[in-house]
Simulated scan of single mutants.
Amino acid sequence: MQDTLLSFFSFQKGTCHRKENKMATLKVPDTAPSPTQDSEKLKKAFHGLGTDEKAIIWILGHRNASQRKKIRYTYQELYNESLIDRLKSELSGDFKKAVILWTMDPPERDAKMANKALQSKDKGIDHLKVIIEIACTTSPHHLMAVREAYCSMYDCSLEEDIACRVTPPLRQLLVGLVSSYRYDKEVVDEIVAKSEAAKLRDAIERKQLDDDDVVWILCTRNVFQLRATFECYRQIYGNPIDQDIKCCGTGNLESVLQMVIWCIDSPEKYFSKVLRASVVGLGTEEDSLTRAIVTRAEVDLMKIKEEYFNMHKTSLDDAIVGDTSGDYKDFLTTLLGTRL
């Protein structure tokens, strides 16, 4: 017990931390307190004269998905109440939304965001971004877990809801993307890349972007094969494929296909654009900002930060600090690895 406490206190001073992978920004202690200790500290943060938001940020903002899951289970066992429900009652605003999304199990979190997107009454396609992100920037195993969580949470499949709520031709593409189980090893066939680049070019020249070949290629090939195909297209036809798709028109299908290609070809560039759009202009687009930080902090946010700097010649950390405030800012910068 004494060794555990010493490790915890040394981490609190910012002297003992690690990143779980080189692309993640999340910092967790080398030896974390037990789920019971964390649950007790969280319970204490909910009592007294006002909620101790700093304690909540400190604990949950320095725990990985596995640790957060154990904390939720232990908190329920100790106090016979849901940690998520308690957070909902204690917190408010964008800070509450961010903490709750972070505390949820990642597949359940993504299933919830996908369902909210499909319930949206918006006539445009911005609400579909989250579905494209889940389908095209996560691992095949995670996407399968999201589909399983969706069925459990909403008594129907993600594919069914897309089919009911999205109209053709986007319906076929999105159902195909979320149904996919891509091979996740780095295997590329250059002959196939050249052949399928030609098929994509043919569809673009005919302005038939809903062609079966387009949907089949984008929804079945592994991401490494698709990146090779996109590069082959650029070399043979002179333009990046997303630019040629843009020249086909300004409809929803063209816009969605561009997003799909960006997410597959370079997730870090895609999310850099999402983050830039969320902090530039009149007001902050908090939902996009929260989604990008929360979903990528354990995946590749370090790469996204590097790409953001390369693209915009300013740091993502500074942009978020300058555009947010209070506990919301403190929580996001904790996930960014800015705050110890």
Rank of each mutant, 00 (worst) to 15 (best):
C248N: 05
E306G: 05
S66H: 12
F11D: 04
V166Q: 01
S34W: 07
K96M: 14
C16P: 00
V294I: 13
I217W: 04
Y183D: 08
S278W: 01
Y75T: 02
P240S: 13
I217K: 09
L60C: 09
L174C: 00
D265Q: 10
Y73R: 13
Y150C: 02
Q2K: 15
V223T: 15
R276P: 01
A45T: 03
I304T: 13
T334A: 08
P267D: 13
T338Y: 08
S272L: 02
H142S: 04
M153R: 09
R72L: 01
M144W: 00
K246S: 07
K129H: 06
I241N: 04
E77C: 10
Q235H: 15
K44H: 15
S39F: 01
L174E: 08
A319F: 05
D85T: 07
I264M: 00
V99G: 04
D122C: 14
R165D: 12
G124E: 14
Q2P: 02
K303M: 10
M144N: 03
L87T: 03
L60V: 13
T229C: 12
V299P: 00
L332G: 15
I241S: 06
L78C: 00
T324V: 11
P140G: 11
P107H: 01
Y73P: 04
N239W: 12
S139Y: 07
F95W: 06
S315M: 03
D287A: 03
G124W: 06
G326A: 10
V280R: 12
F271Q: 04
T284L: 03
E159H: 03
D212A: 14
G283C: 03
D30Q: 07
V260A: 02
L301T: 07
H312A: 04
V146Y: 09
A297D: 00
D317V: 14
T31H: 10
A32T: 04
V279W: 15
E196R: 10
Q2Y: 12
A198Y: 06
D94E: 14
K97M: 01
L200Y: 08
K41D: 11
D202T: 06
Y237T: 07
F8M: 13
M23R: 13
Q67S: 14
